[in-house]
Amino acid sequence: MKNGGGVEDSVVVSTDKLVRTFRVGRSELVALKDVSLEFHRGEFAGLVGPSGSGKTTLLNIIGTLDTPTSGTATVLGERVEKLSPGQAAALRSRQIGFIFQTFNLLPVYSAYENVEFPLLLLGLSSAERRKKVTDALEWVGLADRAKSKPTQLSGGESQRVAIARAVVKRPELVLADEPTANLDAENSHKILQTMVGLNRDLGTTFIFSTHDEKVIRYLRRKISLVDGKVANDEARSPNTD
């Protein structure tokens, strides 16, 4: 079965001969070269590779934060290269959650308010927001820290609030860019287990950009990028011991 974008229904993201180049001075840097991939609903996949391999660039395009130089990227049925900035923002607002390396919580708001923010953009009623935020904080085990400010939270707690913020609107897709880079092993483990649980319980697709072995152990699909090309794409059994 195909949807309007010509992509199978279970396919959340697909790229076809994706190229992204950047002009650096007089020379041209090729960040992605002929990347063709598909991600299906419910995947727990990671883009793995050293710095400069193109994983963040690919994540940016999948997240509609950037557009390809050539080739196509279809995200949730929308052709990224054809989206206006406003349409891209609307798609992110409704369907895509982001988790960043440095948490990026809004410092003057409580954990509850940080998680509530994406729902405000969607214009949900106060009662709907309260229900969803409470649920999200419970998913990440921080219902009792709802009133805490980011400065009162540990790194692990902050990242769990960021995860709650990413999933509170029940997006189809969550993109996580080096989510454990600022966390110790124990907190990384907790965070990843939280995301595995959300992936299992909510059916949310997670795509990571990482070179952290702790994250890689949890992936069910590992896509290795080298110099902007897909060097390896393997399904695997997660090793969470």
Partner: peptide, 16 residues
Amino acid sequence: YGEIGVRLAIGESKHA
């Protein structure tokens, strides 16, 4: 800078 960046990433438009 960070706050505005997060808001844009989350899906708030530049106009908003």
